[in-house]
Protein backbone atom coordinates (compact mmCIF):
# COMPACT_ATOMS: atom_id res chain seq x y z
CA UNK A 1 0.00 0.00 0.00
CA UNK A 2 1.25 3.44 -0.88
CA UNK A 3 0.59 6.77 0.74
CA UNK A 4 0.56 10.25 -0.72
CA UNK A 5 2.21 13.13 1.06
CA UNK A 6 2.63 16.80 0.37
CA UNK A 7 6.14 17.92 1.10
CA UNK A 8 6.54 21.46 2.42
CA UNK A 9 9.24 23.35 4.18
CA UNK A 10 9.02 25.53 7.25
CA UNK A 11 11.33 26.51 10.08
CA UNK A 12 14.19 25.14 8.00
CA UNK A 13 12.88 21.61 7.93
CA UNK A 14 11.26 19.50 5.22
CA UNK A 15 7.96 18.17 6.43
CA UNK A 16 5.41 15.76 4.95
CA UNK A 17 1.69 16.27 5.35
CA UNK A 18 -0.64 13.35 4.59
CA UNK A 19 -2.35 14.39 1.37
CA UNK A 20 -5.83 13.48 2.56
CA UNK A 21 -5.51 16.22 5.15
CA UNK A 22 -4.65 18.79 2.53
CA UNK A 23 -7.51 20.51 0.83
CA UNK A 24 -5.50 22.84 -1.34
CA UNK A 25 -2.48 25.09 -1.36
CA UNK A 26 -3.11 28.77 -1.92
CA UNK A 27 -1.22 32.02 -1.78
CA UNK A 28 -2.50 34.28 0.94
CA UNK A 29 -3.58 37.85 0.40
CA UNK A 30 -5.34 40.43 2.53
CA UNK A 31 -4.37 39.02 5.88
CA UNK A 32 -6.30 40.34 8.84
CA UNK A 33 -4.36 40.14 12.05
CA UNK A 34 -5.93 38.99 15.29
CA UNK A 35 -4.70 41.14 18.14
CA UNK A 36 -4.93 39.77 21.62
CA UNK A 37 -4.89 36.17 20.50
CA UNK A 38 -2.24 33.46 20.67
CA UNK A 39 0.87 34.19 18.61
CA UNK A 40 0.25 30.87 16.88
CA UNK A 41 -2.50 32.62 14.95
CA UNK A 42 -0.84 34.45 12.11
CA UNK A 43 -4.08 36.08 11.11
CA UNK A 44 -7.31 35.49 9.28
CA UNK A 45 -7.68 35.08 5.58
CA UNK A 46 -10.84 34.80 3.51
CA UNK A 47 -10.78 31.96 1.05
CA UNK A 48 -13.97 32.48 -0.88
CA UNK A 49 -16.70 32.46 1.73
CA UNK A 50 -14.66 30.73 4.38
CA UNK A 51 -12.50 32.42 6.95
CA UNK A 52 -9.25 30.53 7.42
CA UNK A 53 -7.37 30.81 10.65
CA UNK A 54 -3.74 31.09 9.61
CA UNK A 55 -1.27 29.13 11.71
CA UNK A 56 2.27 30.36 12.16
CA UNK A 57 3.99 27.00 11.93
CA UNK A 58 7.38 28.52 12.44
CA UNK A 59 6.33 29.99 15.77
CA UNK A 60 5.34 26.56 17.01
CA UNK A 61 8.88 25.34 16.41
CA UNK A 62 11.13 28.28 17.09
CA UNK A 63 8.91 30.49 19.25
CA UNK A 64 9.68 33.28 16.84
CA UNK A 65 6.81 34.77 14.94
CA UNK A 66 7.33 35.16 11.24
CA UNK A 67 5.86 37.91 9.19
CA UNK A 68 3.32 36.71 6.72
CA UNK A 69 3.36 38.49 3.43
CA UNK A 70 0.94 38.63 0.60
CA UNK A 71 1.74 35.77 -1.73
CA UNK A 72 3.09 33.39 0.91
CA UNK A 73 1.91 29.83 0.62
CA UNK A 74 -0.52 28.28 2.99
CA UNK A 75 -1.78 24.73 3.15
CA UNK A 76 -5.54 24.66 3.59
CA UNK A 77 -6.80 21.98 5.91
CA UNK A 78 -9.92 21.41 7.92
CA UNK A 79 -9.66 20.19 11.49
CA UNK A 80 -12.73 19.52 13.61
CA UNK A 81 -14.88 21.49 11.23
CA UNK A 82 -12.75 24.63 11.30
CA UNK A 83 -10.77 25.68 8.26
CA UNK A 84 -7.11 26.50 8.82
CA UNK A 85 -4.24 27.70 6.68
CA UNK A 86 -0.81 26.48 7.66
CA UNK A 87 1.77 29.04 6.63
CA UNK A 88 4.78 27.37 5.02
CA UNK A 89 7.95 28.70 3.44
CA UNK A 90 7.99 26.47 0.44
CA UNK A 91 5.80 23.86 -1.18
CA UNK A 92 7.66 21.08 -2.95
CA UNK A 93 5.62 18.28 -4.38
CA UNK A 94 3.26 15.46 -3.70
CA UNK A 95 5.23 12.27 -3.18
CA UNK A 96 4.27 8.65 -2.99
CA UNK A 97 5.73 6.76 -0.09
CA UNK A 98 5.55 3.04 0.41
CA UNK A 99 4.14 1.80 3.66
CA UNK A 100 7.50 0.41 4.74
CA UNK A 101 9.11 3.83 4.42
CA UNK A 102 6.68 5.20 6.95
CA UNK A 103 7.79 5.19 10.58
CA UNK A 104 5.51 6.25 13.36
CA UNK A 105 8.32 6.82 15.79
CA UNK A 106 9.08 10.11 17.37
CA UNK A 107 12.69 10.97 16.67
CA UNK A 108 12.13 14.64 16.68
CA UNK A 109 13.45 16.86 19.37
CA UNK A 110 12.29 19.99 21.10
CA UNK A 111 9.21 21.62 19.75
CA UNK A 112 9.15 19.37 16.74
CA UNK A 113 8.22 16.47 18.96
CA UNK A 114 4.90 18.05 19.83
CA UNK A 115 3.82 18.55 16.26
CA UNK A 116 5.14 15.51 14.45
CA UNK A 117 4.28 11.89 14.87
CA UNK A 118 6.88 10.04 12.87
CA UNK A 119 8.93 10.34 9.75
CA UNK A 120 9.11 9.08 6.22
CA UNK A 121 11.95 8.28 3.89
CA UNK A 122 11.73 9.62 0.41
CA UNK A 123 14.54 9.58 -2.12
CA UNK A 124 16.82 8.39 0.65
CA UNK A 125 16.09 11.49 2.64
CA UNK A 126 14.26 11.65 5.94
CA UNK A 127 11.25 13.90 6.28
CA UNK A 128 9.25 14.67 9.41
CA UNK A 129 5.64 13.59 9.36
CA UNK A 130 3.38 16.43 10.46
CA UNK A 131 0.57 15.90 12.91
CA UNK A 132 -1.54 18.79 11.74
CA UNK A 133 -4.16 18.27 14.42
CA UNK A 134 -1.60 19.07 17.09
CA UNK A 135 -0.91 22.45 15.52
CA UNK A 136 -4.24 23.84 16.47
CA UNK A 137 -4.60 22.36 19.92
CA UNK A 138 -5.24 25.01 22.49
CA UNK A 139 -2.96 23.32 25.06
CA UNK A 140 0.00 23.53 22.74
CA UNK A 141 -0.42 27.22 22.31
CA UNK A 142 -0.84 27.91 25.98
CA UNK A 143 2.19 25.76 26.74
CA UNK A 144 4.17 27.46 24.02
Amino acid sequence: MENLFLVVEFAGERVAIPSHEVESVVRVENIVSVPGASPVIAGLFALRSRVLTLIDTQYLVTQESRTVNKGDFCVVTEIDGHPYGLIVDRVEDVVTVAQEDLMHIGFANGKWRAISNGMITHDDKLLLLLNSRSLVKVEIQTAA
Partner: peptide, 19 residues
Protein backbone atom coordinates in the same frame (compact mmCIF):
# COMPACT_ATOMS: atom_id res chain seq x y z
CA UNK B 1 -21.37 34.92 12.20
CA UNK B 2 -18.86 32.18 11.63
CA UNK B 3 -17.68 30.22 14.62
CA UNK B 4 -14.05 30.90 15.39
CA UNK B 5 -11.41 28.18 15.58
CA UNK B 6 -10.72 26.98 19.15
CA UNK B 7 -7.38 28.77 19.13
CA UNK B 8 -9.13 32.00 18.34
CA UNK B 9 -11.81 31.51 20.95
CA UNK B 10 -9.13 30.76 23.54
CA UNK B 11 -8.12 34.40 23.37
CA UNK B 12 -11.33 35.12 25.25
CA UNK B 13 -11.95 38.30 23.34
CA UNK B 14 -13.92 37.18 20.35
CA UNK B 15 -17.15 35.36 19.70
CA UNK B 16 -16.28 34.51 16.16
CA UNK B 17 -15.54 35.99 12.80
CA UNK B 18 -17.59 37.32 9.99
CA UNK B 19 -17.03 37.98 6.35
Amino acid sequence: VKPGAPLLMASGLYTGTSL
